[in-house]
Design a protein around this nucleic acid. Structure first.
Lengths: 365, 365
DNA sequence: CTGTTAGCGCATTCAA
DNA sequence: TTGAATGCGCTAACAG
């Protein structure tokens, strides 16, 4: 394409009616100011290196002609993008339906703001996670809900890119930020079993089908299942009793949870207690129960993981594992920033705790 | 810094104990494969341009030595970052407390996924919005809640960067995606006035104090105020009666809304109706009311803007303006993509509608 | 169909 | 304190 440079600094593109403003570069500014490109560069990045006088002159002319350094060129030269990525295993539109994720991102965003970093939301390109890992222009990544796919980890290694996982394995070769899902799951199950519940429905988040041979199941769920079994053993229930419990999966949206809840609560032989893997699911059951005139907790006990701020809206108040979502985001990002700076870091296990409130009552006989 | 290149492709940095893997570049691959850099470039970007045979050879060696094109260098050369930014007037950690924003981002993310674009969350750098506009490495931006600050618009012009606003002015010189806030606000007020309410509390979102001389007040609120006055006029209330109504502001978090709600509902002379500018605030009032044994709608009517999916959890169901948050995000991003491609576009006004449910009852005398 | 060549815009080393 | 020269890794116009 032929560019005709006009005197007034505009460019006329052949075959296009558009007249677009030409980018004013460091060279233009240097010429107009009668200094070298280096001087201009210093003016913007390291003013101490040049005299007060030339600094002022450069800045004055910069304003006049509307110059500011091109971010991309600067990135190429410095090898620093000044942004970190959050890698989701699913489309952004899916993932953001879960308020827990918002909480996580809030935490990540807090540190980014503090560090002057931008935050980019990344999801699989053409369904392939590794494409994204290879092509994202970021200094480091935080990965969510990706555990067992080791190709992910080697992709990071190939790019030599620092990354930190949230809610993945804690004993793995990468850095993870999480809680003790197993023992927390146990405590939550204890509450139900102590109250004599026998017909319990477990409501998990739908496992994510990636570009993997076998559909991935997050280790978070694995750990929680172990915790649930720990509790059963403690209560002298055979482990395989778990099979007689119902285990369902739902999407991570309120509407989907609600739909499933409605269906379940209308069944003949409905459970007396619901064990949710996320508040968003408890939302669905609360709504469905209200509509069906099923009282919580008299007719139905509900417990859940997360205890998000916004879940305070639920009435009666939810018995739940208080999950430090925001703090997870903060911790993971702080670690990532250190790793980008070349420091060594270790996995972190954050504290969680059970909050017993009024959504559980003894099972009716 | 002195780099000693070792035979095995590792670099040893002086004064550092770190041994880091050296980046393998297009040049390395071209040499190893015995072809030109161009051939390699085509192999990755436009395979049809080279023979099947060389393509295979290149890709094979690429895998062996672990080559993949550097995203930043590619961006510099193509002048396309492949990412769009969402510019918030506040820190990400603030803004994400409002589920309405998540809804917006979901919509934006949907189009980004479809188009293969990354999405970066941008907030003011060092408190200055224009810094961010100047330095972000994106192809275009969507701006939220920034209206009256014309310096923002000239900053975009200076960078020659396409942008689209959400919830800003519709008759402005830039492209906006929004709803008819004025008439919607009127309908909502009608409901309250028709039910005989006279002590109404208006609950707005706290205006955003930017780096502006005068604190900005979003035009959304302006429009809604006009709508409210329209309704009052229609009901033969003097406009200045509005002054006798209470008008408060809250942060956009559930906790903040709840705190304020609790305070207000405990006052001697509490309002009989609450008019919320966002669901998140209605959440706060529902919770506070439940705790204070104030029944909705018998003792307190509540109406709101947004009607988010997750607000379905509220009981009794909320009378609200159904706001197409997700759709706004989609529409704005579709327009932005077109603008980046050089197409001309116009502002869009999306449909909203009032959903009358059970959170309103006649005022008690 | 393939390869050569010339930038993209900036930061930075080194010499002046 | 300043400036000339070089390179970052890639793409794309152009010539072969």
């Amino acid at each position: 394409m032929l560019n005709i440079t006009l005197v007034n600094g505009f460019t006329l593109k052949k075959n296009e009616i558009i007249i677009e403003k030409m980018k004013v570069t460091i060279k233009d500014l240097a010429e107009k100011a009668g200094v070298s490109k280096t001087a201009v560069s210093f003016a913007f990045n390291n003013p101490k290196r040049i005299s007060e006088e030339t600094y002022k002159k450069i800045m004055k002319i910069a304003k006049e002609i509307g110059y500011s350094p091109d971010p991309v060129a600067r990135i190429l030269a410095t090898k620093q993008t000044g942004t970190i990525g959050v890698l989701f295993p699913q489309a952004v539109s899916e993932v953001l339906q879960n308020p827990y994720i918002s909480d996580l991102i809030r935490g990540i965003g807090t540190v980014c703001d503090k560090e002057g970093l931008a935050l980019t939301l990344l999801s699989p390109m053409k369904g392939i996670l590794n494409n994204t890992i290879q092509n994202a222009a970021v200094d480091g990544m935080i990965i969510l809900g990706v555990d067992k796919d080791s190709s992910v980890h080697s992709a990071f290694k190939m790019r030599n890119m620092p990354y930190v996982a949230i809610d993945a394995k804690c004993n793995a070769e990468y850095i993870n930020v999480g809680i003790d899902d197993r023992s927390m799951a146990e405590s939550l199950m204890d509450v139900l079993l102590d109250n004599g519940h026998e017909k319990i429905l477990f409501c998990a988040l739908k496992p994510i089908a990636l570009d993997l041979a076998e559909p991935d199941q997050s280790t978070t769920i694995d750990e929680r299942q172990k915790g649930i079994q720990d509790s059963m053993r403690k209560h002298n229930l055979k482990e395989n009793t778990l099979d007689s419990y119902t285990f369902i999966e739902s999407e991570t949206s309120f509407e989907s949870s609600y739909r499933i809840a409605k269906q379940i609560l209308q069944s003949e032989d409905r459970p007396t207690a619901i064990y949710c893997m996320g508040d968003i699911q408890a939302f669905g059951f609360y709504k469905a129960a209200a509509e069906l005139d099923i009282n919580i907790p008299e007719d139905l006990s509900v417990v859940s993981f997360d205890d998000l701020p916004v879940s305070g809206i639920l009435y009666p108040e939810l018995t739940a594992i208080h999950q430090p979502g925001y703090e997870k985001g903060v911790a993971a990002t702080e670690i990532l920033v250190k790793r980008i700076a070349g420091e060594d870091c270790k996995s972190v296990r954050l504290n969680a705790n059970i909050v017993k409130r009024s959504s559980v009552a003894p099972a009716k006989k």
